[in-house]
Design a binder for these strands. Structure first.
Lengths: 203, 203
DNA sequence: GTCTATACTTCGATAGAC
DNA sequence: GTCTATCGAAGTATAGAC
C-alpha cells in the first residue's frame, strides 16, 4: 500500500524516509528555483544530486509523483512556519515577512505555473492553498478585531488575499527586474503595519 | 538588416508581415494559454497552425525569437487597450477590468514564469512592464488627486502595484481552483470603485 | 539500494530541393 | 515560401544484474 496513485504496475518503489530520496527532492527544489520547472527533468535532478537518472524513477514512479512530493513537503513546511508566525506577538508583520520570503514566493509561482497544466498537481496545490488561507483567517479574526478593524468592512479573508497578492507580486516583479512603484508600495505597507503593530524591530 | 539579434549566420528569415508568421504566433499564444510554456515547441506550434515544423524556424531563427515576438505583440496590444481604458470616463474601473481579463493575466503569468530563466525574454518583459506602469501612473496622477486621494499617503504608483497584484492573483488562484477569500476581496474592491467612480454599469 | 543497458519519443535546428 | 530529409541531444521510463 505504499504506491501513491492508481497502482497499475507492480514495480517497486524506494522508501519515503530515504536520505537519497530527500537529496533528490532538494535537488529538484534547487532546479525549480534557479531555472524553472522545465529544468526539472529526471536527468538534471539526478545530476544535481550527484546520482544516476534511473534513481529518480526508483523513488518516484513518474515525474508528476516527484512534483507532488515537492508540493507536499513544501506545503507542510509552510504550514509549520505559518503557525509560528501567527502565534507571534506581531502576527500581521510576521505573516507579511513570511509571505515576502523570496525563495518561498518564487517556489509558489513556479509550482503554480506548472500546476496550470498538470491536473494532479493543481488539485494538491489548491488544497494546500485553501488550508493555509483558512488557518490564517481563523487565527487573525480575533487579532484584527482587537486592532479595531471591522470585519464587516474588511473581512480577514480579504485582507489575507491582499497580503498574499502584494508580497507575491513584489517578489515576482523584483526577479524580473521590473520595480516601478515597489518602493512606494513597500512604504505604504510598512506604514500600515507600524500603525497596528508598531515599528519594525532591528533584530 | 532584418535579422534580430546577433546576426551570426546568413540564414534567410521570413517577412514580419507574413500571414503565416501571424498564424504561428496565434498558435503559440493558444498553446501558452492552454498548456503552458513547456508545450510551446516548434513541432506543436506548427501542428496547431496546420503547418510543418520547419516553418517555425524559417520565421523565427530560434524558439527564443518566437517568444520575444510573442511578448512584443502582446505588449503592444496591451498598451493600446490600456490607453483606451485610461481615457475612459471611469479610468480606475476600466483599469481594474482590463487587468482582470483572465486571458491577459494568464498570459502574463506564463510569460513571467518562462522569463525567469531566459535572459532575453526577461529583459523584454521587464521593459514592457515598466512602460505600462509608468503610463498608468502618469494618466492616473491627476485623476486620483481629483478623487481626493492624497499622493503623499497613497502614491499613484503604489495603488497601481496593488491593482495589478490583486487582479493577477485572483485570476491565477481561480485557475488553480483556490478561491478562499475571493468573494470578500472582490466585494471590497467593488465598494472602493463604487465609492470613487459610481456603481458598475450593466451594459 | 544502486548500477548498466536500453527502448522509444520528442526536441531544436540545419541543408538543400522545388 | 514551403517542402523532404536528417542530425544530435535530451527527455521519460523500464528490465534486470549486482
Amino acid at each position: 500500500m505504499r504506491d501513491s496513485g492508481t497502482m497499475s504496475t507492480t514495480r517497486r518503489l524506494g522508501a519515503e524516509d530515504s536520505a537519497t530520496r530527500a537529496a533528490l527532492l532538494d535537488a529538484a527544489r534547487q532546479l525549480l528555483l534557479e531555472e524553472g520547472y522545465a529544468a526539472v527533468t529526471s536527468r538534471r535532478v539526478a545530476a544535481r544530486a550527484g546520482l544516476k537518472p534511473q534513481l529518480v524513477h526508483y523513488y518516484f514512479r513518474t515525474m508528476d509523483d516527484l512534483f507532488l512530493a515537492l508540493v507536499r513537503r513544501g506545503g507542510e513546511q509552510y504550514l509549520e512556519r505559518q503557525a509560528r508566525a501567527l502565534a507571534s506577538p506581531r502576527p500581521l508583520r510576521a505573516l507579511w515577512e513570511l509571505s515576502s520570503d523570496p525563495a518561498g514566493a518564487r517556489l509558489t509561482t513556479e509550482l503554480a505555473a506548472l500546476a496550470n497544466h498538470r491536473k494532479a498537481i493543481r488539485a494538491e496545490l489548491a488544497a494546500y492553498a485553501g488550508r493555509i488561507r483558512r488557518l490564517q483567517a481563523e487565527a487573525l479574526a480575533g487579532v484584527l478585531a482587537g486592532y479595531g478593524i471591522d470585519a464587516e468592512v474588511v473581512p480577514p479573508e480579504a485582507l489575507l488575499v491582499l497580503v498574499t497578492a502584494l508580497s507575491q507580486i513584489l517578489v515576482l516583479e523584483d526577479t524580473l527586474g521590473a520595480t516601478t512603484g515597489h518602493a512606494e508600495m513597500r512604504a505604504l505597507v510598512e506604514r500600515c503595519l507600524a500603525h497596528y503593530e508598531g515599528p519594525a524591530t532591528n533584530g
